[in-house]
Design a protein around this nucleic acid. Structure first.
Length: 546
RNA sequence: GCGCCUGUAGCUCAGACGGAUAGAGCAACUGCCUUCUAAGCAGUGGGUCAGGGGUUCGAAUCCCUUCAGGCGCGCCA
């Protein structure tokens, strides 16, 4: 739909000698009376051409001339050009949708460009909780979306397996282990306290026996920390796999960066470029020369690297791998970190227009409309695995994609476990299940769904509306991909499901008239194709029966 | 104090790049199951787009400012 119109408009502009190259905006108007598809093109050109928008619109319409795909072309409002398609065009397009592979639904905006998307990257200090899950859902959907939009995507998880947090993890398990042996070793103040720490201590005792009895942490800490965080990492991998997130292509380890001396090398690089200085025994990165409001320490006066130092190395590592787009998906509480990372990239000479941080806001977990208090100290975070026990991965993912990622999201356990209209997941899945049911019914009746039906009998406003909605799907994918906002697909799905439910209620698909029945079955088939395609991109499956 | 984000219907939220009479779901009220799945459909009511100023043919959208909420601002991670 859009491709056809863009080509026609582009030809018209060329014929008129008007400016080319600019993106031709095309939108589906809010109201049906404004036609099927519309462009504000003339208004955009008004300024540079110094002509009235309506006059420009008239010229464009004249240049388009008679095209058999349009029933009419109107100029309306301040200068919109509104196009109404002929039924024949709609039927032909539906036919194409039915017989083509999925490339018919795709806009190749990536053109094979390489994209790196880093997400989740939860510290390997415990199982995933609900906040991580939102990042996982958004990242996974975005990766799928960009793949389908023509990008070559690598999915990456950065493991913070060096530094203080994993050490605290090791120390926490160490303390619990000693408790099991009757030794009164104090838990570190800011240590980890969840039940899983005790579970790990039990597991350690089972595996290593009393090997570490009376061994101080200074001697066994490294060994124990490594043992523990590796177990945490496999716990995380297990949760992700159960959440049906497509496997990560790369697992980048902070320890590896240190082991390969990439951290020191990166700092040396920056030093050569003149962005490093020493002050009060510490080593600083002059980020204030870029986007940051102050300089940042990379090596503390005690000789330790800061967390920021390994992030410098990590982002240099990303840059060296030659991506066209680099996307980091972070929790929104890290937003203050963006300027310094952008500074790092600029210092390495990278044009940061190819870099994008997507922030994922907090999830407010509610029960009976009341917030469920979670505290890291008490270790009573609600884990992703618990959510999946209660809600299931598909519903959880879909709910996380019903909001723009940087807005807060209420996740009400009563709503998401309800099998009612309150729950948007079911609404969409139900449409899919209904269609399956119709198609199964048709098959049972021995109706021929294979050969080429005559679609021209689909003439009701609802049927034509459904076809138009299906044809607008590629535009939704494109805008979602361009803005890196997979939630737009979720909204589209709810709309499509909505008009299908209305249609279903008003018209019987399988009826007396065989020709009409076959055409309607084809329409249903097309709807199911799009529903299932969109759900697949979101990483959500749909049951055949409900 | 400085910076970032948010503020749209009773509630939860869509409204990319400035465009047409600001939309949806839920909640409320009223109807619809002998018919392919009622986890559904139809109807009704509901708005100072937080307030104020500006930019222009045109502002929920851009700029300034005030207010309210969240987050960040460490030789923490």
């Amino acid at each position: 739909m859009k491709k056809d119109l863009t080509a026609i408009l582009s030809d018209a502009l060329e014929a008129l000698g008007m400016p080319q190259g600019a993106v031709i905006e095309i939108e589906v108007p809010r109201e049906g009376s404004f036609g099927d598809i519309s462009t504000p093109l003339a208004m955009g050109l008004a300024r540079s051409l110094k002509k009235a928008p309506k006059k420009i619109a008239e010229d464009i319409v004249h240049a388009i001339g008679d095209k058999d795909i349009f029933e009419k072309i109107d100029i309306a409002g301040p200068g919109f050009i509104n196009f109404t398609f002929t039924k024949r065009y709609l039927h032909d397009s539906l036919k194409k949708l039915l017989v083509s592979d999925k490339s018919f639904l795709r806009e190749n905006i990536g053109r094979g460009k390489k994209a790196l998307i880093e997400f989740v990257s939860a510290n390997p200090t415990g199982p995933l909780h609900i906040g991580h899950a939102r990042g996982a859902a958004v990242g996974n959907a975005l990766c799928n979306l960009l793949v389908e939009s023509g990008y070559k995507v690598e999915r990456e998880y950065y493991i913070n397996d060096a530094g203080r947090q994993v050490k605290l993890l090791g120390l926490s398990v160490f303390a619990r282990y000693q408790h099991l042996l009757g030794n009164d070793v104090p838990l570190p103040d800011d240590g980890y306290r969840g039940q899983y720490i005790e579970d790990e201590a039990v597991a350690l005792l089972a595996e290593a026996g009393e090997k570490y009895r009376d061994v101080p942490f200074d001697e066994c800490g490294e060994e124990m920390t490594t043992w523990t965080y590796k177990r945490m990492l496999s716990l995380i991998k297990r949760d992700l796999s159960r959440f049906s997130i497509k496997d990560f292509d790369n697992w980048v380890s902070e320890r590896e960066l240190f082991a390969k001396d990439e951290v020191q090398t990166a700092i040396n690089d920056l030093n050569r470029k003149g962005f490093i200085f020493e002050l009060e025994n510490a080593v600083w990165f002059r980020s204030s020369g870029f986007k940051d409001d102050k300089d940042r320490v990379v090596i503390k006066s005690n000789g330790e690297f800061t967390y920021f130092a390994s992030d410098i190395a990590y982002h240099k590592n990303k840059l060296n791998r030659d991506f066209d787009i680099i996307i980091d998906i972070w929790g929104a509480d890290h937003h203050g970190y963006i300027p310094r990372i952008e500074s790092v990239m600029q210092a390495f000479g990278y044009d940061i227009t190819g870099f994008r941080v997507i922030l994922v806001q907090m999830v407010n977990l509610l029960k009976h409309g009341e917030p469920l208090q979670m505290s890291k100290r008490a270790g009573n975070f609600v884990m992703l695995s618990e959510i999946m026990d209660l809600v299931g991965p598909d519903t959880t993912k879909f709910m996380f994609l019903t909001r723009k990622s940087d807005s807060h999201l209420d996740f009400d356990l009563d709503v998401v476990t309800a099998t009612s209209a309150e729950n948007p997941v079911y609404y969409v899945q139900y449409a899919n299940a209904r269609i399956n049911s119709i198609l199964a019914n048709a098959k049972e009746k021995g109706l021929d769904t294979e050969s080429d039906p005559d679609l021209s009998c689909l003439t009701s406003p609802e049927e034509l509306g459904l076809i138009k909605k299906l044809l607008s799907y590629p535009m939704v994918l494109e805008s979602a991909a361009r803005s890196f906002e997979p939630h737009r697909i979720t909204f589209y799905l709810q709309e499509l499901a909505g008009i299908f439910h209305t249609y279903y209620h008003n018209h019987r698909v399988i009826g007396e008239d065989t020709g009409l029945t076959r055409a309607r079955l084809s329409l249903c088939y097309a709807i199911r194709t799009v529903l299932s395609d969109a759900l697949t991109i979101l990483g959500v499956s749909a049951p055949e029966k409900m």
